[in-house]
Amino acid sequence: MEKNYAQILKGIPSVEPRAVLYSNILAKIEKIQVLMARLRLALWSTLVLSTAIGFGYSYTYLVRELSSSDFFQYLSLVFSDGGIAMLYGKELLLSLVETIPLFSITVVLFGGFVLLGGLVSMVRDSRKAFYKFA
């Protein structure tokens, strides 16, 4: 019985979609991609702006901390009097480590990476948000 029906049912003509359906689907997908890119761009812009402000402040603070500490003075000893630096190397190294504003440097580096990453993402999403796909 099934072979009988298989023959009949396979013979039923298949309905074809209109030619425009294919391009309509792709156009809708492109629209969604552009919208998502614009949303991401807005989010990245906010993040980059706030990170840039934070980076600016933390960088200024780092420079102030470095100039108020004795770090540069110890460091300049290495270049001005290499002999003394070699002789008292261990003590000099300890002094450098003690005076370096490690926390501020970490904050500035972290902020810098986030800012850079945000800028790269902004560039990528701005291309998708404002240019048609090929």
Binding site: V15, L21, Y22
Partner: peptide, 18 residues
């Protein structure tokens, strides 16, 4: 994805239309 769409648009449409 264009390849997937080309391959399946007609059969899926025919199924839905049925």
């Amino acid at each position: 994805f264009h390849g997937i769409l080309k391959r399946y648009l007609k059969p899926i449409y025919a199924f839905i239309y049925r």
